[in-house]
Nucleic acid binder design. Sequence first.
DNA 1: GTCTATAGCCTGATAGAC
DNA 2: GTCTATCAGGCTATAGAC
Lengths: 200, 200
Amino acid sequence: MQSAKPAASTDTAQIILDKSIPLFARSGYAGVSMRDIAKAVGISGAALYHHYPDKQSLYIAAMGYAFSDMAKSIQSTLDFKGTPEERLVRFTTSFTEQMAGAPDFRALLQRELLDGDEERLKLLADKVFVEPFKAMKELAQEMALDCDPHLLAISMAGLILFHFETESIRRYLPGGLKKHNNPKVIAQHVVRLLTGVTGK
Amino acid sequence: MQSAKPAASTDTAQIILDKSIPLFARSGYAGVSMRDIAKAVGISGAALYHHYPDKQSLYIAAMGYAFSDMAKSIQSTLDFKGTPEERLVRFTTSFTEQMAGAPDFRALLQRELLDGDEERLKLLADKVFVEPFKAMKELAQEMALDCDPHLLAISMAGLILFHFETESIRRYLPGGLKKHNNPKVIAQHVVRLLTGVTGK
DNA sequence: GTCTATAGCCTGATAGAC
DNA sequence: GTCTATCAGGCTATAGAC
């Protein structure tokens, strides 16, 4: 085990992942060609095959990288002591900020939920969500809302993520305002909903 | 204005839409070829171009059809008188049942939220969501939860839809059970959350 | 209204020079 | 490790017979 960042880690294989992630996020697996990726990296299409044996392997490596990055980030917000309400506020605020700042991750997650096969979904669950989800379930139980903790943990995540998912269409729904895309406003709303009317 | 169902409405143009909707729902625009659709319909690829000038027109017609169907269905559940709590229960139950029975609609909605351009999103909003959303906002205001009604209406929809969106991955999260995919269980959970701990 | 045949382009992937 | 050149096949869309 070496230090976290080996020197000269910016080799081509890594750059390929960095450049292909936003492409896959924007257009999906079928909507991105190997030539598109090659052009974004600045090498020929053939050179890609020196680093990854085929398109699918490249895609899976890109997902693994995009998701492991976020896994670390999410878990760091859940090691926090305090009352259940304090922890709810802390988790909601941090998670909302993280999602607001990671549009590619959100798009890739949505695409994997639609298109991922069993193997990829299991990997995504194990790699990113199982540990945070456990902590969310514990929090859900301590909140004493008399709900199934699994359902409540899903609802907590859904309340936050759905506001981002619908960002593109809320613009055309009555009463849609810019502030509804503000992570602070979203987080405050979610906390208020989950703590009952008593809020803030 | 004629009666709702003109005789012999099952012409080829309509069959093409019926057969292409599940394909687009499963694989997305880029993941479905005109040959795939032709094969599903049982005609040659060239014949498709007699009914639709190109793939994009066919896709847009298919979306229009899939969404107009659901628009009627959603709106029918919102013309209901009663106390706010009665109307919340009614809306939540009906909407959850409708979404549970319309996996293609859910997938197409997700895909349009990811891939739709401004024009398509505006059409989707106007055609399907603007009217139900107004009713949801009214309900949100009457519920007196001291929330921005726009945010609360989005949250109501999100609480329901997110459980379906994550159906494929919840299988791999701790505590995931079959009953968590049961529309009655989901609806009851959502109502309980939105009415505070007091609920049933 | 449907067919077969095909044009013209893009696709993933490979061969072999450097 | 990257390149140019290329293959074999899939793609959208069209032409023209029936």
